[in-house]
Each structure stands twice: as structure tokens, then as C-alpha cells.
Amino acid sequence: MAKKISNSFSNKELLGFYEKMFLIRKFEEKAGQLYGAGKIGGFCHLYIGQEAVVTGILSSIQSEDTVVTSYRDHGHILARGVDPKYVMAELTGRKDGISKGKGGSMHMFSKANRFYGGHGIVGAQVPIGVGLAFAHKYRNEKKISRVYVGDGAMSNGQVFEAFNLASLWSLPVLFIIENNRYGMGTAVNRSAAGKDLYERATVFGVEGEKINGMDFFEVSQAAIRARDHIYENSMPYVIEMDTYRYRGHSMSDPATYRTKNEVNEMKSNDPLISMKNKLMKDFKIKEDEITDIEASIKKQIKEVEKFSLESPLPELNELFTEVYL
């Protein structure tokens, strides 16, 4: 498996993906700390543990492709290349935030980076993402819309409607089900009847598969398979990612619905550690190279933190702007 991937990506590219994962991990840890310090308010859903999903998918994305996700969106907007300082400044509710402090953790967008949110209503991003795919097809663009959806949203009616429309109209969309096993505090087996969640799309003629979402290489291979399938068949595709969030649903969730053993077991499978080990073992990348990258990210996060706390609150006049264009 490693050999096959090594044909696709140079060591430099692989290090780039590791760097992205590490950036997301450190960014989220910092966000958690700033929340604890009272600098971030409201709801704050961290992505720690799931980094291999968004980074593996990233390895298959063309820059013109579009992405849309739910409220757990910090990792996704960082993966799309938005400068983390603007994302953190949004979390602290400041003028320099990516949404000028008017959106917050759950509502971040970047047209320049083809990132269409950041949607706070469970499931709402799925028909929206199918609409992005509709626009790609309408304009004869060779683009794919990537739509992330959590396991919790998979019982939401509009998600089924979106699968139907995507298949019916042969739209270029990849559905990525991030099954982190709990929709807030409810385990998947207590909310979803039937077997695997991705089968909820296959009944509409959307082909798909379930994979280990804790491993960058497995995700990357599946993402590339999916991309090729969409290009070749002009049809949507679905991948269910078996993944895990280390933290609670949001910052104020003590996660008493799962055992410490379960969390520790999943942590022993950590996507960053396993990727790092593979880079050293299978790709002969020196540890120094990796630790240099880690050190520079840690330094960057300190600057990001500083920026996000020094940026002023939005001007009061901002209250009444951008309601209409």
C-alpha cells in the first residue's frame, strides 16, 4: 500500500499533508485552551482525532473544487488553505475574523478558497453541497463538490433528499460521512437502523464504501478512487469514514456516554502518530525533518493566538451591515 502511494505523492507532498494534520491538531488544542480561558464563546466543536479524514480527502482535491461541511468546521477551512489567524480571530469574535466576527465557530466561509461553510444546522449542508455540484455541472466545469456530513445527520430527511437528487441528476459530488460514532451523546447504534450509514446513499444508486478514517493513506486512496469514479461515471460517490473525536461533542460536553478505555484505545490509533511512523519507516523521511515542521507549526500557532487576541472587536456599525447586498 505504501509503495502505491509513494508513486502518487513525493515525500515533500506527504510532509505537506502531515504538516496540515499537525496544524489542525495544534490549532484545535489552542482553540480548546482559549475557550477555557474565556476568550472563545458559544459553541466550539473540536476536530481533534479526525484529522486524517480531511487531510486524506485534501490529497484528492483540485484547487477549483468546492467543499462544504457542518458546524465542526475549523479543520476543514484550514485544510482548504485559509490562514489560521483569520480562523482563530473568528473564534475570538474579532474584526479580523474570516467572517468579521459575525459568524463564529460554526459559520465560516471563503469563496477564494472554495469553502462554502460552516453550517450550523445539522444536515443543511448536504443539499447545499449538492447545489454546488449542480452549478459545476450546469457550467460544464470539471469540478467536484465535496460534502462532509456527520453520522448524526444521517437520519435527517434532507440528507436522503439530497442523495436522491444527486443521483437522479448525475451530479459530481462526493459525500464524506464522518462517522465518529456519536451524534452529540447518542451512539450511532442508538440512532441509525440498518447496517452501514453509507448504504443510505447506495439505495439511491450512489456507489460507495466504508473505510478506516483514522489513517491518512487509506483515506487518500479512497478519495482518489472516488474522484476517478466521479470523473469516469459522472455520478456521485459516498465514502463512510470510521473515525473518532477525542473531545466531547462541544467544549461543554463531558462525554460521559463513552468509557475512558474506549477513548484511550482510539487514541492509541492516533492518525498523526501513525502517519509520522509511516513517513519514517516506509518513506525513509528523517525524524528531524518532521520535528522541524512540528516546531514551526507550534511557533505559528503562538502567532495565531496573539493575532486573534490583539485584533479588535468588530466596529459597532458592523451590526447593521451585510444583511443585504
Binding site: 462554502y116 447545489g131 449542480f134 437528487l165
Partner: peptide
């Protein structure tokens, strides 16, 4: 619910 969301997504993309 589905086609309204789809239309909104298409509008976000500029249609």
C-alpha cells in the same frame, strides 16, 4: 427541503 437546499447551494456558487 432537498431541492430548496440544492437551489441555495447553486446560488452560493453564483447561479
Amino acid at each position: 427541503h432537498g431541492f430548496t437546499g440544492l437551489a441555495i447551494g447553486a446560488a452560493m456558487a453564483g447561479l
